[in-house]
Design a binder for these strands. Structure first.
Length: 294
DNA sequence: CCCCAGGCAGTTA
DNA sequence: TAACTGCCTGGG
């Protein structure tokens, strides 16, 4: 996909950005550290950097990034090399449900997030709700992440490293609202502090072996593993089946109860290598509209 | 106050 | 391998 980028002194403008709507990207459930400001821009932290993103007419305005960071980090993070038009066409062929889901979340892009942060964040997400997940992560970052300075009047912090988290007591972790997940985080942090390159090595494996390796971390089951596969390891056929996806798939495709395994196999058959994108459109559609609930 | 939330681990059969 | 059960905690 060809990018039309205008580098100004204090901001970067991505012109005529296709398939890029900040609200869809940051509120479709894939990330936890982006928050909307009063002017409808979003501020987030990733890669120990703080930026804001705003859509004005057809342009995307990026603040607080250098040209170097934009080229080296943010283009990949925002998946700007991917043409979502092709993906949308493929998965919505002869599928009116998917057509509606895509229309609803047409500005979604899948962020390429950092493996360690993604792993921890989705361990925290289990049996939890999004406001609380976000609060927990901010508590962890505020207490144990690198201080990145102030931005828009707020102190900002990076995501804590495995080394730092591995050295905390269960009590200290619980003080960040982790609850019973504190032990999972401590254990996983210890394992990855010993083998810092392990996640990168795992990411190079095929999806089956990649998943198998992720499941050995405490607090990682099938759903969390698929989230990690999809959101940070480039396995775009991963298909996390959470309660919302289960509900929406049963409601629109099965017209009956269906097991997660059954749903995932159906999705691979139907959506192939783009299954993960299909999952994300369905999840956002279902959750925003409350489809299948009650 | 009760219910539940983007599941998981541990235990049974 | 499938079916159960308990779980921190704070929004709704």
């Amino acid at each position: 996909m060809k990018l039309d980028i205008d580098y100004k002194k204090d901001k970067i403008i991505l012109k005529n950005a296709k398939d890029f709507i900040p609200r869809h990207i940051f509120e479709c459930g894939q990330c936890f550290r982006w928050n909307e400001n009063q002017d409808s821009s979003f501020t987030g932290v990733a890669h120990n950097r703080v930026i804001s993103v705003q859509k004005l007419d057809k342009d995307i305005i990026i603040e607080n990034s250098t040209r170097e960071d934009f080229e080296n980090i943010w283009i990949k993070y925002f998946d700007l090399g991917t043409d979502y038009g092709i993906i949308k066409n493929k998965i919505s062929q002869d599928d009116e449900v998917m057509q509606k889901a895509i229309e609803f979340g047409k500005g979604i892009r899948i962020l390429r997030q950092e493996p360690w942060e993604t792993l921890v964040s989705f361990i925290i997400s289990a049996n939890n709700n999004i406001p609380r997940i976000k609060k927990t992560i901010e508590l962890l970052a505020g207490a144990y992440g690198e201080y990145l300075g102030e931005f828009h009047g707020e102190k900002r912090y990076g995501f804590p490293t495995a080394r730092v988290l591995s050295q905390l007591s269960i009590e200290e972790l619980k003080a960040c609202n982790l609850g019973y997940r504190a032990a999972y985080i401590q254990k996983t942090a210890s394992m990855l502090d010993m083998e810092p390159t392990e996640l990168d090595e795992i990411a190079r494996l095929d999806i089956v072996n990649c998943k198998k390796n992720l499941l050995k971390y405490q607090g990682v089951g099938p759903k969390v593993a698929h989230c990690v596969l999809f959101f940070c390891m480039g396995k775009m056929q991963a298909f996390p089946v959470d309660v919302w996806v289960k509900r929406v798939m049963e409601y629109f495709y099965f017209h009956r109860e269906a097991s997660p395994k059954e749903i995932q196999e159906f999705a691979w058959e139907k959506f192939g290598k783009y299954a993960g994108y299909a999952q994300q459109y369905l999840f956002y559609y279902a959750r925003e509209l409350g489809i299948g609930k009650g």
